[in-house]
Structure formats: C-alpha cells, structure tokens
Design a binder for these strands. Structure first.
Lengths: 194, 194
DNA sequence: ATTGTTGTCGGACAGTCGTCCGAATTAATT
DNA sequence: AATTAATTCGGACGACTGTCCGACAACAAT
C-alpha cells in the first residue's frame, strides 16, 4: 500500500477529495472527513486552518488534475481532427468512468458562484483550459474552415463550454442511451469528420 | 403594490426564491427566509413541511419560468435562423439582466447532483427544453444541412448543452468582453448565418 | 352563540456545525 | 541529555440548524 507513507495532511486531503466527490460539499462535515481519515478533528484546522482552506486545497488538486489530463490528451493526436476527437473521448471517459470527479468539478463550480476564493480558482481552470485548447486545436487549418469568422479565443471557449455543458446534462440524464452523441456531434458541427 | 394581496405561502415562496438566488441554497437558512418575509419560522414548515419541500417548490417555479420563456422565445421568429438567434439572445439576456435566476438554476442543478428529488425536476426541465428546441428549430431544413448525420434529439440536446455550458462559463468570467460571442458562434457552427 | 377549522405565532428541543484550547506525545536541535 | 519545536489528540465552547409543539387569533359553519 502506498498509503502507508503518506503524511497526515496528505491523507486528510485525499479523504476530503473523496468525501466531497461522493456526497457534495454541502453535505460533508469536517467530522465526516476526520473520522474517515481516522484523524482527530482538530488536525483539519491544524493543517488547513479553515473548512474553506481545506476545500480550497481540494479544488486546487482537482483543477490541476483536469488541466494535466486535458493537456496530455491533446498531446497525443497528430492531426487537428485526432486531437479534437481525443478531447471528446476524454470527456466521454470522464462521464463513464470518473463520474465522481466530474460531479466534484460541477459541485465546486457551484461553490464558485458564491465564493470569490473558489471563483478565482475555477476561473483559472477555465482560462487555462481554453488556452490549451486554443494552442493545440485551433490551427490555421481550422481558421480556414467555416469558423473563420470568429476569433481563436472564442472558438476555444465555445468548445470548452460545449463539452462542459453537455457533460453536465449527461450526468443528470444517465438513462439516455445516445447520451454521448452530442460530444461527437460537436466535431461534426465544426466541420470535422471524425 | 401587488404584494399586498399575496397569501402568506406565496410571500414565503417568493422570498425563498430571492434568497436562494442571491446567496445559494447552501448559505440560506429557514430563519433567513422567515425574517425577510416577516413571518414566523414555523410557518415555513406549516406550508411546505420541509426545507426540502420549500426548496423543491422554488425549483418548480424556476423550471416552469424557464420553460415558458424558452417556448415564448421560440414562438416569435418565423424562420429557423431567427428562432435560433432568438434563443441565443435569450440566454445572452439572462446572462446580462437575470444573472440571479441563472445562478439559481445552476445552484439547483448542483443540488440535483446529490438529491433524487431535485434531480427529477431538473431532468424534466432539460428533457422538456430539448423537446421544445427540437420541435421549433429542428425542421427538415436543418436536417438537410451538414448536420444530417445526427438525430434530431441529439442536435437539440447539443444546442441546449452548449447554451447551458457557455452561459455557466460566462457567469464565472464576467470580465471577458466578448464573452457572449460563443453563443452566436453556436449558430455559425451549425451553418446558419445570423 | 358555539363549535370547529384554519392560520399565525413564539419558543423550545435536540442535534450538528466549525473553531479553538490545553495537554500529551513525538521529533528535531542543541 | 536537555531543550525546543512540531504533531497529535480529546474535549469543550458557542452558535446555528431544522423541526416540532402548544397557545392564541380569525374566521366559517352550524
């Protein structure tokens, strides 16, 4: 077990991540986390000062994870079409196999609607994600397509927003069979053949 | 003042709607609502039984409002292009002038991630919205476009998800100037000229 | 006029929450 | 070995939460 040599602060962070992604930030108390981590309640304040401090740290872990995975995904393919298809597949994969992390992302996004601290972290994630997408996908080739009328930044933001919104709808309606078609559809809408 | 002849239960509902949309469901207590409504705390339980009951009622009011506005919006235009442009304008308008209602929608969507009661209400909203979009926008004309490869249902769901996701990003990054371009961009991506 | 129903209120209840503090233990430094 | 610093713990504190109950008022129906 690699968990043996984790510091107590790491354990707390890990357990907090799992708890929130399973039950939602509004339904998790510090006592829940402390007891699941087999740690005294006061240790959470010792390492992270506040509940907000702890949850903020969880948010940073999550956003860093997403950012890295998005970049890794976009690095793989060689052509634009491949990269976009990979990005769509990545979100589809999140929906299928990492529903908890995706729910956590939406939950923390909801927190960002009311708290400036969380808002700045999430803003940074979306800004960085859009930048990466712009860098890897929006090549001159795409600009020559039917999308030449909009800026690179706008196009990248549109892609991100679409993936984000459709994934959220997919989480809320898991019974739909062709629920991930819209993701592939995005590429078609952009004029790609994937 | 039309508020004079509102029943107490209506006042409570109205105040609850406003409170949640201003501070978020996790940050509003029944006492907050009761005091703002100038009503005894126990009255909230008298009329709505639970906190969940009250918030659920707020959710139903909100979803009904959105559904009606979406339908009204789509009824106006005569052509497909107009209808789609109107729908985009409607979301843009929400972002600019009804930010509270939009935030409330996202907040309750977040609640739907953890509670089955809220989930079914929100599911219904998205399902009905997609149906309406499909009915008004996806005519044979659109099917003959470059989108002929996907089903009507999928296309409608894509439009809804895109509007939803991009609006959420727009709320979180209000400083961006051309933040609503992606909305218009959606139509361009679909091959429309608006 | 009396009875019963509905609405309204204040207050109390038990439980949970985040935070903090003092003591005990362990580790590091001198 | 002795002193200082960093961890870890249990417990307590005050504040806040949702829920519930009994009393009183308004009104309707008999």
């Amino acid at each position: 077990m690699k968990e043996e040599n984790l510091s107590q602060s790491d354990i707390i962070l890990k357990v907090a991540y799992r708890c929130i992604s399973e039950k939602g930030y509004a339904n998790v108390s510090l006592r829940d986390i402390a007891s699941e981590a087999k740690v005294a309640l006061s240790q959470l304040n010792y390492y992270y000062k506040n509940k907000e401090g702890l949850f903020l740290e969880v948010t940073k872990v999550l956003t860093a994870k997403f950012l890295k995975e998005i970049e890794d995904t976009l690095k793989k393919g060689s052509t634009e079409e491949e990269k976009l298809a990979d990005l769509v597949s990545y979100f589809r994969h999140l929906n299928n196999h990492s529903t908890d992390s995706l729910r956590l992302l939406y939950d923390l996004t909801g927190m960002a609607l009311w708290s400036d601290s969380f808002k700045s972290v999430l803003e940074d994630l979306f800004k960085s994600s859009a930048d990466i997408i712009e860098q890897y996908i929006i090549t001159p080739k795409a600009e020559q397509s039917l999308l030449k009328k909009v800026s690179k930044e706008t196009l990248a933001r549109t892609i991100l927003g679409t993936l984000y919104g459709i994934s959220l709808l997919a989480i809320l309606a898991p019974e739909e069979k062709n629920i991930y078609d819209p993701l592939s559809n995005l590429a078609l809408m952009m004029g790609y053949e994937i």
